[in-house]
Design a binder for these strands. Sequence first.
DNA 1: CTGTTAGCGCCTTCAG
DNA 2: CTGAAGGCGCTAACAG
Lengths: 338, 338
Amino acid sequence: MAGIVDVAREAGVSTATVSRALSGKDYISPATKALVEEVAERLGYVPSASAYTLVTGRTKNIGVVVPYVDRWFFSSALETVDRELVKAGYDVTLYNLSSGDDHRKSIFTKSLPRKRVDAVMCISVRMSEAEIQSLAKVNKPIVAIGGPIAGAKCIKIDDTAAGKLATEHLIAMGHSKIAMIGSSEIDEKFFDVFNERRAGYELALKDAGITARDAWYKSVSKYAISEGYAAAKQLLGDPHNAPTAIFASSDELAVGAMLAAKDMGLTIPNDLSIVGVDNHELSDFFGITTINQNVHGQAAQLVKTMLQLLDDPEHEVADQLEWPVELIVRSSTARLVS
Amino acid sequence: MAGIVDVAREAGVSTATVSRALSGKDYISPATKALVEEVAERLGYVPSASAYTLVTGRTKNIGVVVPYVDRWFFSSALETVDRELVKAGYDVTLYNLSSGDDHRKSIFTKSLPRKRVDAVMCISVRMSEAEIQSLAKVNKPIVAIGGPIAGAKCIKIDDTAAGKLATEHLIAMGHSKIAMIGSSEIDEKFFDVFNERRAGYELALKDAGITARDAWYKSVSKYAISEGYAAAKQLLGDPHNAPTAIFASSDELAVGAMLAAKDMGLTIPNDLSIVGVDNHELSDFFGITTINQNVHGQAAQLVKTMLQLLDDPEHEVADQLEWPVELIVRSSTARLVS
DNA sequence: CTGTTAGCGCCTTCAG
DNA sequence: CTGAAGGCGCTAACAG
């Protein structure tokens, strides 16, 4: 591999000139610039990232931390984050926490502080105090989606408001027997949005003067169609407490609930209304009314914020930006006919 | 951030000793080793990746190229690849090709050759001659899943065999009117496995003396439930050519087909048998008979191969490893009753 | 506008 | 077993 000295020699100039010609900054005569570029091209010269980093302190690389990559929320966010970062000239190195706790630790204490990244993005990662400390010591900008982290700029939706909005929609449609399916998964990896959504659900019921019943609440172990299916069957089969509407805390659960209802001979939305959260592509296909949280929008905003911080570390950015949610009404909800 | 000199000074030794103590190699007295380790720990010393790379030439980082990250196959593979690589002490930097062609070009000509990675893994990425050339110039090991790349070690399933096996299963169950849904998506980003699967399908029909009909073949634009649904409706509604069985070239398509059949009043598997490919988690839930391609197994093997190559570049590895597929029979296929 | 000169932080011979 | 010295490839002053 040709180095900068090879280019310099071949072009008959100094390495400093080569550096200037190729970086674009600093004054340089158009002629030599063109010459250097031609030679560099011909020799297939590519600057060494490590040498560049060593001297400038900048890596042009962003560390992105995710709890998993093969789950909808995270892969969706990652897709956008990566795309936007690449456009801005950054590489992204991925730190996936699903490898286990010991590796998790080394990610925070070794990998991230290794001066391999200019900033760190956390996609809905719940971190311990110690981990936040480790990160802070790196002294690099930190931005996050999904939950507040001390010392980081964060973007998140108001999950309480989301749960409330979904439930209010159901109430406005005349429903009063409204169940909720949520995941109380004990997962230390990521922020559990569930409790907030449930709080919103209960708030809406309370505002409407409806007394929540324990039997209306089903907890599942993960956000999967199969789980929503099983939970809905339980809910709908209950002879005393069967609901006329279900609020599922994710669209995947909602799809499962819809399938369960159909298998039980119920028609949607006549016999049962369902609303989910996410605006997952599946909810469009299945016609599920949902709360759109626009992951791609959040992710794009996250990158934007990070770029601002990188550009000007003193830039004023709110510690927490609340991303708006909206209700998307489709064919899974309808007025209750009694 | 403490550097190696800080540790050396604090421990009262030379930087060379610190380096030796921490790297573990070379002779060093247990006492000084312990001392250095204690000091390093106390000072929160973390070696700079770029300095390390600059002098050793090694990065402890692997470049992983994917066409998309938010699609099942790729996110599944990425999850395993990352997990295994982290276990082996490597970071992963992600090169997502979905950012557009100009960025794609710079990934191959700039990012990858920048000496930021020790090796490159391509997850089902179709590359042009020029791109392969760029990569080859990096002179680093290249391993791939999904399709042959000159100069790279590759793992792939035999897609023709997969299509044949699926179809043969249907034939063995007594079916002769067998349709196929596949994606002929023109996507330059990744290897199109579809044509091979179709070839296998046709081969099986031919072997059984069945003449394929054009009307049995439906092409869709992408691997999505919605597409499988639409295609199956067309197939099943055809008054002259309605099949009794469908081979879908992915499980997502198969799920769509199943849903379409149900909506049309058909019961699975009595009125229609369906087989997919992937062993996607959905196929388990929906009880779809499928061809398991074991993405996680392929990905793990890929990492293993790469590690061998990194360990010993002369290591003998076949240019192409054929990953076995197996038929998983579930409840979406049954003997044809006539 | 361009060349010279120092390092960036670390590993690695080579001496001791 | 340990220290001194050189250099990995590049950029950023500082001179010219």
